[in-house]
Deep mutational scan, measured.
Amino acid sequence: MDVFMKGLSKAKEGVVAAAEKTKQGVAEAAGKTKEGVLYVGSKTKEGVVHGVATVAEKTKEQVTNVGGAVVTGVTAVAQKTVEGAGSIAAATGFVKKDQLGKNEEGAPQEGILEDMPVDPDNEAYEMPSEEGYQDYEPEA
């Protein structure tokens, strides 16, 4: 019985440690998101679009440190934060509304985080759909 109880105690310690790591990862992701939003706020009209992409990228980098179902929630929060940063930029006159959601080359930025393969159960990952990809044929 002692062996059984000791095993359960060790398992509990492992769960607590994993929860603490997840909590730490979420806190880091939130900190990076805040950094990115402050970065966007300090940019001029020309830099705002690039700044919004930076927020998304920093958040995406930190999301990889967070495991399990938390990833889905962090990704949703990050996307809403990026959308909010863009709205703030438009409201303050840093950028025109028609410039939001495009990178410096004018290509749409939507789907940055949505296409990231995420499995809350950590069982399997699927690649994003290939609808947006084109076949590449090298020139002879």
Rank of each mutant, 00 (worst) to 15 (best):
D2R: 02
D2L: 11
D2Q: 15
V3H: 05
V3C: 03
F4N: 00
F4E: 00
M5L: 01
M5H: 00
K6Q: 01
L8Q: 00
S9C: 11
K10G: 00
K12V: 14
E13T: 09
G14R: 14
V15G: 00
V15C: 06
V15K: 00
A17L: 09
A17H: 04
A19H: 04
E20V: 03
K21D: 00
T22F: 10
K23G: 02
G25H: 15
G25T: 12
V26M: 15
V26G: 00
V26W: 14
A27C: 10
E28A: 11
A30N: 00
G31S: 12
K34G: 01
K34S: 01
K34F: 14
E35M: 15
G36A: 14
V37Q: 00
V37C: 07
V40N: 00
S42M: 14
K43Y: 06
K45T: 05
E46N: 12
E46G: 02
G47K: 06
V48P: 00
H50C: 15
G51H: 05
T54L: 13
T54Y: 15
A56M: 07
E57F: 13
K58D: 01
T59N: 01
T59D: 00
K60L: 04
E61G: 10
V63G: 01
V63Y: 09
V63C: 06
N65Y: 11
N65F: 14
N65K: 12
V66K: 02
V66S: 02
G67W: 15
A69N: 05
A69F: 08
V71W: 12
T72E: 09
T72M: 14
G73N: 08
V74I: 05
V74M: 14
T75P: 01
T75R: 04
T75I: 07
A76F: 09
Q79P: 02
Q79L: 13
Q79T: 11
K80R: 07
V82W: 06
V82H: 03
E83G: 10
G84T: 15
G86V: 12
S87R: 04
S87L: 14
S87Q: 11
I88C: 03
A89Q: 04
A89P: 03
A90C: 12
A91N: 04
A91E: 05
T92L: 10
T92M: 03
G93M: 04
G93W: 07
F94V: 04
V95R: 08
V95D: 03
K96I: 02
K96A: 12
K97V: 10
K97C: 07
D98I: 04
Q99F: 14
Q99A: 13
L100I: 06
K102E: 11
K102C: 09
N103C: 08
E105Q: 08
E105W: 01
G106P: 10
G106M: 05
A107V: 07
A107F: 06
Q109G: 03
I112S: 14
M116V: 01
M116I: 12
M116K: 09
P117Q: 12
P117E: 02
P117Y: 07
V118E: 11
V118A: 09
D119S: 05
D121T: 11
N122H: 12
E123N: 10
E123F: 10
E123K: 10
A124I: 04
Y125C: 09
P128A: 10
E130C: 08
E131H: 11
E131D: 12
G132N: 13
G132A: 09
G132E: 14
Y133G: 10
D135S: 07
Y136S: 09
Y136D: 01
Y136L: 10
E137D: 06
P138T: 09
E139W: 08
E139T: 06
E139N: 11
A140V: 06
A140E: 11
